[in-house]
Design a binder for these strands. Structure first.
Lengths: 341, 341
DNA sequence: TTGAAAGCGCTAACAA
DNA sequence: TTGTTAGCGCTTTCAA
């Protein structure tokens, strides 16, 4: 019978309640509650006695009861397209850690890359009455935005500087990225620019600014190819092949992800194309392998963990009704120049 | 005042309760509850009337009240070391999706690679009264295991075939991986084996079996280098350099992750070492870029999403008190042979 | 097929 | 500093 708890385990039972602790300690339930939530208001002797009772009974508070009574769930919901291979992972990881430090738990919802199921997801989230919702790289249907807003739950959007945020926003301007990358490439003497991106809204916004800026700088109109998200190395290889077949004179490529860029690098080598001499390649994301590639990959770096930490700060402040210095935080980005351009 | 909800938004309010819906529909609260949870027991006409009232009021159930009364939270907690760069991501992603399909939400806890804070994490998790807990790649302190068990909450461990599972287990044998990889390499004529791994328990278990099997096959004792988790490409480069400096005759390397293996590949190329002629390289994880590398990387493939789906199946079955066919599920692994060996 | 009463475990509000 | 009362929103149980 290896699964029977050994007798050394205290009589911990999931059904131990505040009342049980109270009667063991010889105080009222309210006093136990105060020891847990505001020990300063209770005499040291009582606190000690109650703490002992808690330990001996193995009491663990019931968050559902707490949430029901106090209307505070200490739960934050995060919505992102998918967990798998996501550029948002560092953000979500940092968010989880920063929230845990503040006594909040994270609930994860994957919206997928389509709007299907989003409605159900939103209902599920609202039904938990989280103290806040962090949206990451998610574009909502109007209906979804409306329901989220109507719920009255504080919302922080991240990874995007939209013109009309729902409430608080922590991100950067994808337009600025597109513009600066095209300036950077043209500044390096490139004239036939191209972009390979995912078919998501953020990538499209970078493209629009990229193309517009290139034209303003007097070089020929760039060309673009879009692949279905999430973007992979294989996409990069295939798309470079197709792109060069049609536009052999392209001399610079902006890839929507470092994975795509790695694919481009590999395909270029396979075709005997010299990077950066014949072709400049710049990625997006600065994954941990990018600096180590040969040639080392020039890329756009976003401080994902910082976004997560700021989002945690903002959403907790909003949840507690504290004032926020700014409603829109631009974390910016950096073009990390390496060997591939 | 752009933040004031537009008047077209229905009077959705987070404070709409079952009672409100009931009075709008002209029925009792209990009837509304039944329409939501067991519509078959209610007449079609009443169902329609209640559904209308729900829509017009914008009612969203309160999970905390539901959980408190019914002792069912429809919440599953997942514990993993870290979200960032984790080999478990596909598993967690699939788990989240599979649970959502069954009406369950996922709560994420990061235990870190140390035991610090694990105790607090466990308390936080138990206090939510999740219907189940999925443990992924986490080795617990005895105290932690005891408290988890004492909580009475169903537990599924994943990614590991430990000799004494807490309850249900979905994983594979790290010993078998180590053994098979050494057999594979020796079968290819290699004799001076080496391993580069993370300093986690699973990696160490693979190493022990790898070394033992190699000796049994009559080749010299393999050498190993361990780096702090999570493993990166940079670790791979550095460690290969150090390893070859000391053991220049090594002719095969088993890396604990494909990221490490990529680093080894890059460093080998930088040093003018021919892979696979002079050095065979095998990774672990089969990341999406591994097949595209040059040379394409031989690696050990684990079906991460399958583990997540099976874990979802098991934990939900346990939560509902349904019988389970097996308590230990071995998903196995595959050595995917490519160009690097 | 529907309703009424009770209470899940906790804390806000008030009282002592 | 501590206790009492009431009730958060829902579902279990019993009754009709």
């Amino acid at each position: 019978m290896p699964r029977t708890p050994s007798p050394s385990i205290p009589a911990q039972n999931i059904r131990v309640t505040l009342k049980d602790v109270a009667s063991v300690a010889g105080v009222s339930a309210m006093t136990v509650s105060r020891v847990l939530n505001a020990p300063d208001t209770i005499s040291a002797a009582t606190v000690a006695r109650v703490r002992e009772a808690i330990a001996s009974t193995g009491y663990v508070p019931n968050s559902a009861a707490k949430a029901l009574r106090s209307s505070k769930s200490r739960l934050i919901a995060a919505v992102l397209p998918t967990l798998t291979g996501s550029v948002f992972l560092d953000t979500i990881g940092a968010l989880t850690a920063a929230l845990a430090r503040r006594g909040y738990q994270l609930m994860v919802g994957q919206s997928g890359y389509s709007a299907i199921g989003e409605d159900q997801l939103i209902t599920d989230i609202i039904s938990r009455r989280p103290d806040g919702i962090v949206l990451t790289g998610v574009v909502h249907t109007d209906e979804g935005r409306r329901r989220l807003l109507a719920s009255g739950i504080p919302i922080v959007e991240t990874w995007d500087l939209t013109p009309e945020p729902l409430d608080v926003l922590v991100g950067f301007s994808h337009e600025a990225v597109g513009r600066e990358v095209s300036r950077f490439l043209v500044g390096k003497g490139r004239r036939r620019l191209a972009l390979i991106g995912g078919d998501d809204v953020r990538s499209k916004r970078r493209w629009t600014a990229f193309a517009k800026s290139a034209r303003a700088l007097g070089v020929p109109a760039p060309v673009a190819r879009f692949v279905s998200a999430p973007t992979t190395l294989a996409h990069g290889r295939e798309t470079l092949r197709a792109l060069l077949a049609e536009h052999p004179d392209v001399d610079a490529i902006f890839c929507s992800s470092d994975a795509l860029a790695l694919g481009v690098l590999i395909e270029a080598r396979a075709q005997g194309i010299d990077v950066p001499k014949q072709l400049a390649v710049i990625g997006f994301g600065d994954l941990n392998f990018s600096a180590q590639l040969d040639p080392a990959l020039t890329t756009v770096r976003i401080d994902g963990p910082r976004i997560g930490e700021l989002a945690a700060h903002c959403i907790v402040a909003r949840a507690l009704g504290e004032p926020l210095d700014e409603r829109i935080i631009d974390v910016g980005f950096t073009i990390v120049e390496r060997e591939s351009t």
